[in-house]
Design a protein around this nucleic acid. Sequence first.
DNA 1: TCATTCGCTCAACAGGCGTTGACTCAACGA
DNA 2: TCGTTGAGTCAACGCCTGTTGAGCGAATGA
Lengths: 193, 193
Amino acid sequence: MGERGVPRAERRRRTEEKILGAARTLFAEVGFERATIRAIARAAGVDPALVMQYFGTKQELFQQAARVTPVADGELTAEEVVEHVLASLSVKMGEVPQGSLAMMRSMLTHPEAAASARQVLGEQIDRLAAAIPAEDARLRAALLTTIMLGVAVGHQLLELDELRGVSSDEIARLLRPSLRALTAEQVAGDRTG
Amino acid sequence: MGERGVPRAERRRRTEEKILGAARTLFAEVGFERATIRAIARAAGVDPALVMQYFGTKQELFQQAARVTPVADGELTAEEVVEHVLASLSVKMGEVPQGSLAMMRSMLTHPEAAASARQVLGEQIDRLAAAIPAEDARLRAALLTTIMLGVAVGHQLLELDELRGVSSDEIARLLRPSLRALTAEQVAGDRTG
DNA sequence: TCATTCGCTCAACAGGCGTTGACTCAACGA
DNA sequence: TCGTTGAGTCAACGCCTGTTGAGCGAATGA
């Protein structure tokens, strides 16, 4: 199967990367429980036992495959926050990293993925809250985050017909006023009915 | 174990309901794949074989347990749509029917659940779109729906700390301007930067 | 050159899964 | 009263899962 002259260390790195790639794809497509070690190994062109040897456990394989690199950011204004969130949604709309998709796909059924999701979302909420000038900044930031989560789920994972093929710009344009309404401090009173 | 004097038909109905209840709870808590027939039967105080005898297949059990009764509605104004959506979120916040939770919990990993979710959400989008006075009404309705989906997922299933114990009224109050921004036709131009 | 390392495969294990068929026994209808 | 029905159980099936230990053969370093 492979490249006779390649040194061991390099071969090992390549194989590990092949496995991680296959794992990311499968975890993203079918979630943690339906993505079997055997299927991942097959997709990577490798024996299932090798996957275990390299990653020890399906759990650890998932953790490495679904690791999301946290985007550390400086201080932002409220308006910048909106644009930042909108930009993160699109990232060219469909080029969302597979690791993130894997985590999202699994977060409702796999406890470890849920914990990761909570942490990642929690960090984003913290970052956003710092830029929202309101006493209930954390709650507003949480809603902002869940809004984007919902749109991402509906679009990337559920693949709702209505969102298919819609450009990220158009979604951003429609969503912008809604997000701004959350980041701007409410002054006017409102009625319930 | 059971009520000697109860007639057969009644016993049968009660047992079926016990199984469905246990199924709803487990599907809602851990999703389709992790909710085993054995665990459901145990929770219902019944033999696993009986579950199969009554429902035929785990798939059919899920379909019956996660059946969501569509709320058919008359025509609404745009503002009524917002209130309707907000009200549906709360339904006393935490008393979301377990069937719906089961469907939501499973929709990212179980194809059948995904199909159901698409259908239910699609119907809601249709209903909402009819009340939104804009050319891109369907897209706006879809975003409205995914927004509420995200909030529900974050609150009910992911149980984000920031949303825990927050009253539905407060969430509705914060979300209202955002939703109205989506239902009201945009007139003002907007800048991207 | 030769012993050693190590990437990788093979065959198997134990356990859990959905599902089935034979069975028990109380409720039923005549 | 007695045969029939049907609710419910029991033990087992075949399959698939994550995981393991023994082994093969090429790259490695002395």
